[in-house]
């Protein structure tokens, strides 16, 4: 009897599968996931988890959250990040302190693995969603993430 039972089960499961794809077929006009890229360039927005490039957000007072701890530089498997830092006098406490000078990021070498962002203890760097990253000159891929004249946001080190 299980012979005919098998046939019945087989047909039933095949029809279940076909109904699933059939539903997709009918709704495909509305739910198409294709992005017709160069045409919809003006309003194409990448999803949040898209990894475009590493950026360092600054607030309106030109302050960032990077303490210059170099953890991202150590975490990067291919030496994409270079931190240039020096010891300067902190104006508030008057003590000497490690401070970031330049946070250099070579986009051309980055594999978008995200380890630097995981490693950063103060969440100073994060992913940007832009994707049109091609340039005609290789040197343009080397970016300084902290803006000129920026300084550490107060309270980050506490």
């Amino acid at each position: 009897m299980s012979y005919f039972g098998d046939i019945y089960k087989g047909i039933k499961t095949l029809l279940t599968g076909m109904s699933v794809t059939g539903k997709y077929f009918i709704t495909s006009r509305k739910g198409a996931i294709t992005q017709q890229y160069p045409d919809n360039r003006d309003n194409l927005k990448m999803f949040d988890r898209f990894r475009g490039e590493v950026v360092m957000p600054h607030n309106e007072n030109n302050e960032h959250r990077c303490t210059g701890c170099q953890k991202c530089e150590l975490a990067c498997p291919n030496g994409t990040i270079e931190i240039i830092w020096d010891r300067q006098i902190d104006p508030e406490t008057g003590k000497k302190k490690k401070m970031i000078d330049k946070h250099i990021y070579h986009l051309g070498m980055c594999t978008m693995c995200g380890l630097c962002i995981e490693a950063c203890p103060t969440d100073a760097i994060k992913w940007a969603q832009n994707f049109e990253n091609s340039v005609y000159d290789r040197t343009k891929l080397t970016r300084v993430l902290n803006k000129p004249g920026s300084k550490l946001m107060p309270g980050v080190e506490d």
């Binding site: 794809t21 997709y24 077929f25 495909s28 006009r29 739910g31 198409a32 996931i33 294709t34 017709q36």
Partner: peptide, 10 residues
């Protein structure tokens, strides 16, 4: 075309 519609493409 049919394949595209089944796979939610255009």
């Amino acid at each position: 075309k049919v394949a595209a519609w089944f796979q939610l493409r255009i």
